[in-house]
Design a binder for these strands. Structure first.
Lengths: 218, 218
DNA sequence: ACCTTGAATTATGAATACAGAATACATGAA
DNA sequence: TTCATGTATTCTGTATTCATAATTCAAGGT
């Protein structure tokens, strides 16, 4: 086995995103670098590097002299992110080879139908959903586009824990995934793209009601 | 006047992008942090922060233990970036208020026609082009999308200096801008969007021949 | 001659130290 | 009481230092 040596900043970034998924951090909360570094068992330097990366992805905000804080959530921003990801994933689909998409359709269908046990871990459910989208986009030859999608989705992680334990939402999601896959199996990429857009739009609408209004701290 | 206080990392980032526009750096070139920090008159810490940001935007690559280097240029990557920006700008246009776009059309036309003097500074010419696109997208209400466009375009700056002193290319560009603006004036956003896509595609084709093939360093 | 091996050098990744801005707090005047 | 002002404290932004991985180069063996 080739043992992995990755920069601390990347590991820290992932750990912070994980905690974000778990809802550990309150949106809008200021980050105390010394405390957080101690908690993670690293020094401030790689921690700050990770924070800067996350700020670049929109997960955090930074203000001169005031450090970093988790960007406050808002239904406006969530809508904006959904519009962006919908556009990017649609583009990725359009750039993919239609034949390869058709070949992959059965696998996509299978995965969409086998949604995880309702009592499964929240993290596992989210992972299942992510995996489906990753598989869908996997045939897109535009690597930069795929990286970009990953990065933008990181910025959406602040919202994912809000849907915890909502079975009906997940069923709708699975349903829509099936529809997309069926279009692909039929070789109709345009229809699949449209369905994918709808998937994000409806996901947006489903979520928008559960986003708390967070007043901007003075 | 409110005097500005901005983090060094941001100023460094901009300075590096400026130098990139000027073609100061060879693509694929390794960065020596100590040398560059001394050259800029700052310490390695804020420099590294800027480098990490730029790596996140795709301007640089980073390898464990090997530090940062300017990402090598390739026609494949340039094509990918053009596809992405075309998609994002089209999306921004579709999300804009059609009425506001129509109102802005005359200004866009004026600006497109008044392309700068052929003998103007290269940087000024590029700025002119950027300004036109910024104005075009300015009415889009999706702020995150606009930030994203800016970020992706930063990743394209490695290519801009390659078109230095190509008058014919610029005339084609201005021509296409006029066409887009005229569609908007007519209230036909869909046609304008299509023309915008074409603008990027043709820009891609025009450029692709002048991108040198850089063999991957071992 | 070519490849391997190991010491010396160089540069990065991470930790620590330091200076100054932002905040909190307390004291005093209106 | 309330507001203002000065002071102490906290935390960030930047510089410096330290440890170790990566590279270079030379010596020795095949």
């Amino acid at each position: 086995m080739a043992i992995q040596r990755r920069p601390l900043r990347e590991q820290i970034r992932e750990e912070l995103l994980l905690r974000l998924d778990r809802g550990d951090f309150a949106a809008g909360k200021d980050i105390n670098e010394v405390v957080l570094a101690a908690e993670l068992g690293v020094s401030r330097t790689p921690l700050r590097e990770a924070l800067i990366t996350l700020a670049g992805e929109g997960v955090l905000e930074s203000n001169q002299g005031r450090g970093f804080r988790f960007a406050p959530v808002s239904s406006k921003e969530f809508r904006e992110l959904c519009e962006i990801v919908a556009g990017l994933e649609s583009l990725a689909l359009e750039l993919s080879d239609p034949d390869e998409l058709r070949e992959m359709a059965p696998e996509l269908l299978r995965l969409a139908r086998s949604f995880p046990d309702p009592v499964a871990e929240q993290s596992e459910i989210e992972w299942h959903d992510d995996e489906w989208h990753d598989l869908l986009l996997g045939k897109c030859p535009n690597e930069r586009l795929l990286d970009l999608v990953t990065s933008v989705k990181a910025g959406m992680r602040r919202y994912t824990h809000l849907i915890a334990g909502e079975d009906t939402l997940l069923e709708r999601e699975a349903e829509e995934h099936c529809r997309i896959a069926e279009h692909l199996r039929a070789g109709d990429v345009a229809a699949a793209t449209a369905a994918l857009r709808d998937n994000w739009v409806s996901g947006m609408e489903r979520m928008t009601s559960r986003i708390p209004v967070t007043p901007e701290p003075a």
